[in-house]
Structures are given as structure tokens and as C-alpha cells.
Amino acid sequence: MLYVILIAAIIIFWLVAVDRPVLKVKFEDGKIIREKGHFPPAFRHNVLDIAEHNPFTGELKVYQQRTGTKLSFSKNVPKKVQQRIRNVFPHQGFRSRGAKKSG
């Protein structure tokens, strides 16, 4: 019985504590160093254009939530650049899992 409780605690810890973004992009001096996840081509083009004009070093993460998507930036990404990236973010390209396409 104790092992069942232990396994349940490990699973709950994994679901809550593990960082699981849908998209993770790392920048260094305005260039993409590493990307993991679905990076829509139009959004990628716009982010690279922003990074070319205002080079920065940092990380961008996109999380899928029930209410939609959430953008998260590392602390060394300037606020002005964060806002420009939020402005070009394609909310339709990152649909929540429960949302159905109307067609």
C-alpha cells in the first residue's frame, strides 16, 4: 500500500514541478541558438526580424494552458523586445488542446 502512495506522489510531483513548454527558443546576440517544439514559420520570421533590429540574449518559452497560451521570457530579455514579440505572437497557431477548429 505504501508503494502505491509513493508512486502517486512521484507522478503528482512530475506533473506539477517539471517544466514542460510547448516551444522553447534560446537566443544569443539576436540569433537562435536552440529551439525545441513547434515554431510556426511566420512567427519565426517575425521574431528573427525583431532580434535582428534589437539583438538580445535570453530565452522564450510558450506554455499551453486551459485558457490559451502563455509567453514566458528570461529576465535578460528587454521589456521592449518582449512586448514586440507578444505583438506578433500567433495565438491561432497555438490552439489549446480542447479547442476545435470551426470549418
Score class of each variant (00 low, 15 high):
Lys61Asn: 00
Pro55Ala: 12
Arg86Gly: 08
Gln64Phe: 05
His91Arg: 05
Gln83Leu: 02
His53Lys: 05
Phe39Glu: 08
Thr57Met: 08
Glu52His: 11
Phe89Thr: 08
Asn76Leu: 14
Lys79Ala: 13
Gly68Ile: 14
Phe56Ile: 02
Pro78Phe: 04
Gln64Ala: 03
Arg34Ile: 15
Leu60Asp: 07
Pro90Phe: 04
Phe73Val: 06
Glu35Pro: 10
Ala42Leu: 13
His45Gly: 12
Ile33Asn: 15
Gly58His: 10
Arg66Ser: 07
Asn46Cys: 11
Thr67His: 04
Gln82Ala: 07
His91Met: 05
Lys75Phe: 12
Leu60His: 00
Arg66Pro: 02
Lys75Pro: 03
Ile33Arg: 15
Leu71Gly: 09
His91Thr: 14
Ser72Phe: 03
Phe43Asp: 04
Ile50Val: 10
Pro78His: 08
Phe73Asn: 00
His38Glu: 15
Val88Asn: 06
Gln65Phe: 09
Thr69Cys: 02
Arg84Tyr: 01
Ile33Asp: 12
Ile33Ala: 14
Glu59Leu: 08
Phe43Tyr: 10
Lys75Gly: 06
Phe39Trp: 12
Asn54Lys: 08
Phe56Met: 14
Pro55Ile: 13
Ser72Val: 02
Leu60Ser: 00
His45Met: 13
Val77Met: 10
Arg66Tyr: 11
Phe43Met: 12
Ala51Asn: 02
Ile50His: 02
Arg84Ala: 10
Phe39Tyr: 15
Tyr63Asn: 03
Lys61Ala: 03
Lys79Tyr: 12
Thr57Gly: 03
Pro40Thr: 04
Arg84Asp: 05
Pro41Trp: 11
Val47Ser: 09
His38Lys: 13
Lys79Glu: 04
Lys79Val: 03
Arg44Val: 01
Arg84Phe: 08
Pro40Val: 13
Asp49Ser: 10
Arg66Cys: 05
Ile50Glu: 06
Gly37Arg: 09
Gln64His: 14
Leu60Gly: 07
Gln82His: 00
Leu48Ala: 12
